[in-house]
Every structure is written in structure tokens, then in C-alpha cells.
């Protein structure tokens, strides 16, 4: 079945030994080569699977079983302290989610915190990357310094930020007081708490995204800028018309990764208030946190599993939307490239 259309496209397989044209009859040399070519074909056919096998083996052992178990548990009444003692519940746990105000509240919070955290984070990262792309002294210092928050654990970062955001004794309110702004209660109220938590996320991830953007910027062919400059484009115009379009795939990549991260946001809101309720009125309870509260505070593994699967399905839907959007977008910008 493997026909070698190596002329058509990149695929390597089959493009190797077999089809060397223009040799006459069977010499010993030829025969050796044919045997080798047989081995080659086996090699090229089997090796892709060998290369991806470790991933799927490990995933099957440690990822698939939990996923299926969770899906199964979501269809049962089951308590954390007796995970094997299941009582069939059908779709009850999912149906309940539809009318569960706490679920919808958590979904809304996840969305707003996600937007509050992701949009500024990527925008700042883009701006900083642009600045770091200038010729300057100490660029490595700036780059390393901006990467340090990434090395800090969620626990350590949240611990510090929770103290900085204290109402009566936090440094942030102290600083606000210096400029005449009244103390803000960062630990209650939707807007303030969600803002505070978003800043923790922004703090930890901006540097990381900055460097990814910066790398992509450095890979933009310089002649594009040169010709733009010849056309009299200002630096700002160059950024807009050369840098941004070239970065689009990278931006989409970071958006996808950030979206997944935001949907699963968990550690920051948990540690910020020290409880899975996410504020006295669930002001910043995210989906991950609600699931955790259901499983580990209420010990209701069945309902927690249903929330987990709802998150899973939600991400898949988001994935489909992204896919559709980018399909449309790329159709709009014409089909260049293979």
C-alpha cells in the first residue's frame, strides 16, 4: 500500500531507500540493498508507532483509567470515603448541574477570572516582548528577572499575595492609602477578589509568555521590516502590520494554552482565601474549586465527578469553537502555504 509519492509532500516514510531508479538487474549489491530496503520499509512503517507508543502507554495507564473511572463515578452516588461503593444514579448528577446555581456561578467566575487574567497577561507580554526586542543593555537580566515568577510555586506566590492584599495590614492598601485611596477589602466582593486573583495569575505567567513572543519576534525575517521601512512605515505601523501578523500562530498557541489553564484554575483561588468555598459568597469560586469542594469538603465523589466531566466537555466545546474560528480566519486570509 505504501506508494512513494515523495515528490508530492514532505512525508519521509517510503522516501528513503526503496525507490532508487535506474539500476539494472540483480547484482549481489542489489540484493543486499533490497533486503535492506525491506528492513527499511518495516522500519519506516513501525517506527512512528514505536515513537508514540511510550506516550500512549503511560497515558493509558495513568490518564485513561482515572478519566474513565471519573466518568463512571459521575453516573453514581458515591462518597469519597468509599469510592468502590457505588449506587447507580444515571444522569442525575448531570441533570442537577443544569439547575445548580453554584455551578453556574462557578462557571461565570471561571470565565471572568479567565478573561481578567488572560487578556492583560497576553497583551502585556506582547508589549514587553516588543520592548525587549529592541537593542539594549542588560537584556538578559530583564529576561531572567521576568522569568523568576514562573519558578515560584502557586503556594508560595499566593501566600505572599494574600498578605500583600490584606485589608487592614496589607502593603497594597497601605500604598493606596499613601495616595489617598480608602482601604479596599480584597477578600470579599466579586470584582475586587477576582481582580486580586487575576493579578496572581498575571504575575506568574506574563514573563513566560513574554519570552515565547520574543522568540517568535526574533524569528520574523528582517527583510519584512526593511521593506516596510522603505515604504515609510513607522515603528508602530511595523508592529501592527509586520510583527502581529507574523505572530498570529504563536498568539493562538498561547491563547489555547492559557484558556486550558484558566478553565482549570484552582490553586490560586483555593489558597487565596484558604477555603474551597472561594469567598463567603462564592465570589471567586472557580469550576475547579467547586469540584474540589464537592469532592473534598462535601465528600460527594459522584457530583464532583460530574463537574469534572462538565469541565472536560466544556474545554472540548471551546476547542471546537477555536477550531471553527481559525478555520474561518485562515480562509479569510487566503490559502497560502501547503
Amino acid at each position: 500500500m505504501t506508494t512513494h509519492d515523495s515528490s508530492a509532500a514532505p512525508p519521509v516514510e517510503g522516501g528513503a531507500a526503496p525507490g532508487r531508479p535506474g539500476r539494472a538487474a540483480e547484482s549481489p549489491e542489489e540484493r543486499r540493498q533490497r533486503r535492506r530496503s525491506w528492513r527499511f520499509r518495516m522500519d519506516t512503517k513501525a517506527s512512528p508507532y514505536a515513537f508514540i507508543a511510550p506516550f500512549f502507554l503511560f497515558f493509558g495507564a495513568f490518564g485513561l483509567f482515572p478519566l474513565l473511572f471519573t466518568g463512571w463515578a459521575a453516573l453514581h452516588r458515591v462518597r469519597l470515603a468509599a469510592p468502590n461503593d457505588m449506587e447507580w444514579a444515571g444522569l442525575d448528577n448531570f441533570v442537577r448541574l443544569m439547575s445548580d446555581e453554584y455551578f453556574w456561578n462557578a462557571l461565570g467566575n471561571t470565565f471572568t477570572i479567565g478573561v481578567l487574567a488572560t487578556v492583560p497577561q497576553l497583551a502585556i507580554a506582547l508589549g514587553l516582548a516588543h520592548l525587549l526586542n529592541y537593542k539594549m543593555r542588560g537584556s538578559n537580566f530583564f529576561r531572567v528577572a521576568m522569568l523568576t515568577p514562573y519558578a515560584t510555586s502557586v503556594a508560595a506566590a499566593t501566600l505572599v499575595f494574600a498578605m500583600l492584599y490584606g485589608r487592614d495590614y496589607g502593603m497594597i492598601n497601605w500604598a493606596l492609602d499613601l495616595v489617598g485611596i480608602d482601604a479596599v477589602d480584597w477578600k470579599s466582593g466579586s470584582l475586587t477578589t477576582q481582580f486580586a486573583i487575576s493579578t496572581i495569575v498575571i504575575w506568574r505567567w506574563t514573563g513566560y509568555n513574554t519570552l515565547i513572543y520574543l522568540a517568535a519576534m526574533q524569528a520574523v525575517p528582517k527583510d519584512l521590516y526593511e521593506s516596510a521601512a522603505l515604504d515609510g512605515a513607522s515603528p508602530w505601523k511595523q508592529f501592527l502590520h509586520v510583527t502581529l501578523p507574523s505572530l498570529r500562530p504563536t498568539i493562538l498557541f498561547t491563547v489555547v494554552v492559557s484558556t486550558i489553564g484558566a478553565t482549570q484554575l484552582f490553586g490560586e483561588p483555593l489558597l487565596f482565601g484558604g477555603s474551597p468555598s472561594g469567598g463567603a459568597q462564592n465570589e471567586y469560586q472557580t469550576l475547579g474549586l467547586y469540584m474540589y469542594e464537592m469532592g473534598w469538603t462535601n465528600f460527594n465523589l459522584g457530583r464532583a465527578s460530574a463537574i469534572a466531566w462538565a469541565m472536560f466537555l466544556l474545554l472540548i466545546i471551546i476547542g471546537l469553537v477555536y477550531w471553527a474560528v481559525t478555520k474561518l480566519a485562515s480562509r479569510g486570509t487566503a490559502g497560502k502555504g501547503a
Binding site: 508507532y49 483509567f65 471519573t70
Partner: peptide
């Protein structure tokens, strides 16, 4: 870079696994 059967499907599967919320895997 290699060509094999069900490649795109398998790649989708890989990306799909990124979406599994990690907390609940803990019990099983």
C-alpha cells in the same frame, strides 16, 4: 514528520488529554 495511519486522530487524542482536569484523577 512521519506518516502513519490514524495520525491526525491520535494527535487529537493527545491534545484532548490536556483538557482532563487533573484534580479528580486523584481518587482513582
Amino acid at each position: 514528520k512521519l506518516r502513519f495511519r490514524a495520525k491526525n486522530l491520535l494527535l487529537l487524542l493527545v491534545i484532548g488529554t490536556m483538557m482532563v482536569p487533573p484534580q479528580l484523577s486523584v481518587v482513582p
